[in-house]
Amino acid sequence: MPSLFFAVLSEAKPWIQKTNAKPVHHSGKFRIYKKDSMYIIISGIGKIAMALAVSEFAHLLPKEERDEMKVWNLGIVGSNQPNWKVGDFFWIHKITDFVTGKDYYPERMTSSVFPMETNLTTFDRPVSKTKTENQFQVFNETDLQSVSLVDMEGSGFFEAASLYFPLENISIGKVISDHLEGNFCKPETVESIVTNVMEPLFFEWTTPLPWVTEDPFETKIWPDIWKEVKELRLTETMKHDLKKSLRFYFLRYPNTKIPMPNLELVPKIKSKSEVKTFVEEWKKQLHV
């Protein structure tokens, strides 16, 4: 059960034609297409529009479906790396929101026909390295020194998606359309660029998540751990965050025993601050 988010129709059109997806009639604002269990969503330009589209879509689904859904954001980006070519595809392992300075870390794609990874910086306006008549933000080489790829939706997508979907279900992939020359791509150019990478991505997108059909973490590991620590009386938020960190470790190191804290301390922990410290120290072990 996969879903796919795009900013504009020209990015989504090849995928809509490939899947033969049809519009979903609903009372919301954003365009949603569906074919069987596949969804394609078009948000419009910008991180706020993307975040709202993710939220609206998530609220149309029961939690059980969200937990089993592969959630991707694909689209075109500008590149600050002159040696990377138009049409090169990258998975994103770090997103920086330029305005807020916040960093986000999507799960790394462990197996894909496209092996390259890099970071993505999300801006509120289009970016150019040369002054143009268009309404671009102009930056020099020094300003963009740590920037690899540039878009306007990535941080909004990831921040919203991580509220509704398991982190390990979320991926972001981007294909280079320009080198920040200050020109908008024509729709037919965008369609061509997206089409050229679509075929292998389609197979990967429609392949079920490996933990959906059989989930030993959910059936065995988490219940056993929870028996040991439920006496802490965690808030629902703390419980959710701890479980997410434990699952992260399990997926990253499936053949390694999950690090556990000193469980003899559990009966002695009474105050909320002690509980919080105990959990935070445990989570640090899980994210090394």
Results as ranks from 00 to 15, higher is better:
4 L>V: 10
27 S>K: 12
35 K>G: 00
49 A>F: 04
66 R>M: 13
126 P>M: 10
1 M>G: 09
157 F>V: 06
283 K>P: 00
54 V>E: 01
253 Y>P: 05
229 V>N: 04
141 E>G: 03
111 S>E: 12
44 G>L: 05
213 T>F: 11
13 K>Q: 14
22 K>M: 10
9 L>E: 14
31 R>D: 04
190 V>L: 05
184 F>T: 00
79 S>F: 08
235 T>C: 02
246 L>Y: 04
274 E>Q: 11
256 T>C: 10
102 K>I: 03
137 Q>Y: 14
174 K>H: 07
16 I>D: 01
97 D>K: 07
181 E>N: 12
140 N>H: 13
3 S>Q: 02
183 N>T: 14
157 F>N: 03
79 S>R: 00
147 V>M: 04
59 H>I: 01
60 L>I: 01
195 T>C: 09
61 L>P: 09
180 L>T: 11
99 V>N: 11
67 D>L: 14
259 P>I: 01
41 I>V: 15
8 V>M: 11
285 Q>D: 08
156 G>Q: 09
48 I>A: 11
31 R>H: 07
250 F>S: 13
20 N>W: 03
160 A>V: 08
186 K>E: 15
121 T>R: 00
284 K>H: 01
202 F>P: 05
222 W>H: 08
276 K>G: 02
279 V>E: 08
175 V>M: 03
132 T>I: 02
233 R>E: 15
143 D>G: 00
92 I>G: 07
131 K>I: 13
51 A>I: 00
257 K>E: 15
172 I>F: 04
90 F>L: 07
66 R>D: 07
148 S>C: 14
144 L>Q: 06
268 K>T: 10
144 L>E: 10
33 Y>V: 13
223 P>Q: 10
195 T>P: 00
115 P>S: 09
226 W>V: 08
157 F>I: 09
